[in-house]
Design a protein around this nucleic acid. Structure first.
Lengths: 218, 218
DNA sequence: TTTAATTTTTAGACATGTCTAAAAAAATAT
DNA sequence: ATATTTTTTTAGACATGTCTAAAAATTAAA
């Protein structure tokens, strides 16, 4: 059995491994968890003894298969709870993270299986991130950044890169919601901003926004 | 903010105070939490400094108003989650306790308010125990032990005293479920057992069972 | 390739919450 | 009322997870 702290370390390493193929550095983990590198070293030794990470001094860590399974299960729980909060309890997508961060540590396989069923076995969370299945497999979707669309191309909004509540609230305000069709009307060369159409509304979005919004090309 | 451990102490004291009007002894708390009296003394000092209990050496503790509010809120969460597990996730009443014991510590007022609404503002949990409202008030029901019924009297099953999973599973097996009407057909003097009728089934239950089952007389 | 900068680890400290064993206080019995 | 038993508290210890400061290893730069 793993403590709350151990689970958070495993989850952090899991996330870092998805965007890197090298071993994960002590510093990277420390930053992810807003703790100190020395604390990370201590914890890593413990996790290594428990056979959930492979650790060689100064060489960073990687998850073992067991570790990967435990970590993906925590992510699975996190994302299922996020869906629950939005679908059943009327949370908006910018409010779910902190609560899910707590709920992801609840231990009860039956709870998660039943929740999964109640929600209709969702494959993605409210931010468009994939929900791992029980074996840790992710259903990946061929998604691109909105910024890669050319003039007159369209896509369905399927996710966000930055899921800070500021960004999510900003999208809400603009009427940008997962599932909506977005068409690029114009690309402005001088500042790389975009004129887009959503429903029958035209609006202009900055390059920064376009680089944080995923769409599935259609 | 209170730690998990502090919350468990507050809850334990809350439960003990409901069945006692004196200060709660160190030993009683230790037993409730299966810990040692010395640990309890330590924790009580901390809680006393935080103004949630009143503590005088050797005299036991009582909750302050703040303490009572915090504790009843934890109980509220526990019981709402139990209802959720039974009503929405198909748990049976003997499976909910351990999971609710974890869920009760999740911190999010919105979560609880929305959950309350989703469940239709229930007043009692699956074992018939009252769910405190936001101010800690309990809707008490005039309930009696089944053993107090006389021959040919009837009652609606509204709760259990012992909610161990063994007892609850036993009741399930016998078809005794909250809300069912029970009629006493016979009281056997020599062993104080009861012949009762439930639906159109007649069955015999021991005195021990009759002393653990609450009914509302009709 | 030797030096400088960065990263990582170690050593020692601290807070939390627990424990055992012994001392102190309170309750009970003779 | 004194002695005995029980309850409660204190003192000192330990595990967990964290930190700071210093040492060691690695990486980058001159």
């Amino acid at each position: 059995m793993f403590t709350l702290s151990e689970e958070n370390y495993l989850k952090a390493i899991y996330h870092l491994e998805l965007s890197s193929d090298k071993g994960i550095s002590t510093n990277a983990i420390a930053e992810q968890l807003t703790t100190k590198a020395s604390s990370v070293t201590d914890m890593i030794k413990k996790l290594s003894e428990k056979k959930v990470v492979v650790y060689k001094k100064y060489k960073g860590v990687t998850l073992t298969n067991t570790g990967k399974k435990i970590a993906s299960n925590i992510v699975r729980k996190h994302r299922l709870w996020e869906v629950f909060l939005v679908e059943k309890l009327n949370f908006s997508w910018d409010e779910v993270h902190d609560v899910a961060e707590q709920l992801e540590h609840i231990k009860s396989p039956k709870l998660i299986n039943q929740l999964d069923a109640l929600l209709g076995f969702p494959t993605h969370d409210p931010h468009g991130d994939p929900i791992p299945d029980e074996d840790g497999n992710l259903k990946t979707i061929e998604k691109s950044l909105l910024s890669t669309l050319q003039k007159n191309e369209s896509g369905i909004c399927v996710g966000v890169d930055d899921s800070s509540s500021e960004f999510l609230q900003f999208l809400d305000k603009k009427g940008i919601i997962l599932g909506k069709k977005i068409t690029v009307l114009e690309k402005e060369d001088f500042d790389n901003s975009f004129a887009i159409q959503i429903d029958d509304k035209k609006l202009s979005i900055s390059n920064k926004i376009a680089n944080n919004l995923y769409i599935r090309k259609i």
